[in-house]
């Protein structure tokens, strides 16, 4: 009776992995709230949170908490988007950063913000919508290419081209800004950061990320079926068109506003699904939840480290994720070459 045993195993993985990751996320979030210019114990964090008017209370409520929540949201979003893209393209190198979606989102947000296209009341909503539009455009391009070409390399090269183009256009828009300080902000948009963000950023990005993640989760069954091949998936009653639309919409909804709030952070969506895939027994649906938690955990730790590394100007998040992600990417390429020479 092997079938029930496998079922039991997979069910065990589907509970223990998210549970374990959740515990780590909570622990790390508490640590993230404790560190800063002044270190606090968790009890002190709680006490200050409920102390109105005092500077330390303001720092905890208005700086540390939004920073931590944004790292969780953005990391989680990038993680789940990476898992969805890898599942949909059945391509282990797919990642919203490598495919140019992060870059497209940054360009969209930059276009809206610095040109002041939409000012006034609609302004705060315009930034995530700009990011969303940019991410959607890049995702459509990549999905269209993925339909045309089956080759992993071609898809990645197309992503490289899109990334380079969006980075160049982002710089161009910033250079056109009448405000000379704007050019200094290129670094933020290309490398990302959650430092000194506020609840406003969470307010505009959070709902989009949540909706996008829900859309992606709804695609889980389709991704599972897709591992058997497109024809088999179709015979199992999966509408490939709807699945594709769901993945595109979900990734754009997650990555666009997340990038609009925290800049283009690379490699989270590449590294996290890879590490977690064996733990969820290569199930692309279970990988979605696990990758969301893993992405949140990774970005939280990257943000803890940028605050702990003693440099005069705080490092950007993207620096750390690239230091981790780029060697991983290289290792992955060589491993794939060995597997599929």
């Amino acid at each position: 009776m092997t079938v029930p045993k496998e079922n039991r195993d997979s069910r065990r993985g589907s509970v223990s992995v998210p549970l374990g990751l959740s515990v780590l996320v909570v622990f790390s979030a508490v640590l993230s709230l404790s560190i800063g210019a002044v270190w606090l114990s968790p009890a002190e964090v709680l006490r200050w949170f409920f102390t109105p008017g005092e500077p330390m209370g303001v720092a905890v409520r208005e700086l540390r908490l939004p920073r931590t929540v944004l790292a969780l949201l953005v990391g989680g979003g990038l993680g789940i988007a990476g898992a969805a893209l890898q599942g949909y393209t059945r391509n282990p190198l797919a990642d919203s950063g490598l495919l140019g979606i992060n870059g497209g989102a940054a360009l969209g947000a930059v276009l809206v913000l610095y040109t002041g296209l939409l000012r006034g009341a609609a302004f705060t909503l315009a930034i995530p919508l700009g990011g969303l539009a940019g991410a959607a455009a890049a995702t459509f391009l990549i999905a269209w290419l993925a339909g045309k070409v089956r080759s992993i390399q071609t898809l990645i090269l197309a992503g490289v081209a899109v990334s380079a183009l969006t980075a160049a256009l982002t710089s161009l828009v910033l250079n056109f800004s009448p405000n000379p300080f704007a050019t200094q902000e290129i670094v933020f948009w290309l490398l990302g950061s959650v430092a000194d963000r506020s609840w406003e950023h969470i307010g505009f990005a959070g709902p989009f990320i949540a909706v996008g993640a829900a859309v992606i989760l709804a695609c889980g069954r389709g991704l599972q079926a897709l591992t058997l091949g497109e024809d088999t998936a179709a015979s199992l009653g999966i509408s490939l068109g709807r699945l594709r639309l769901g993945i595109i919409a979900g990734c754009a909804l997650v990555v666009g506003p997340a990038t609009a709030a925290a800049g283009a952070i690379g490699f989270v969506g590449l590294v996290v699904p890879h590490i977690l895939r064996p733990l969820v027994r290569y199930d692309p649906a279970k990988l979605l939840v696990a990758s969301a938690l893993g992405g949140a955990l990774l970005l939280l730790w990257a943000d803890i480290l940028v605050r702990l590394i003693p440099v005069e100007q705080e490092l950007k998040l993207g620096v750390l994720t690239a230091l981790l992600g780029a060697p991983f990417f290289l290792w992955l390429i060589f491993r794939l070459r060995r597997l599929y020479p």
Binding site: P55, V58, A59, Y114, N179, P180, A182, E185, D196
Partner: peptide
């Protein structure tokens, strides 16, 4: 300086945390 041209830097100066300590 260039207060009307929206940038992240301008948004930072208007951060909620600063407003809460305006007293």
């Amino acid at each position: 300086f260039h207060d009307d041209d929206p940038t992240l830097g301008n948004m930072l100066v208007r951060h909620r945390a600063l407003r809460q300590l305006s007293g």
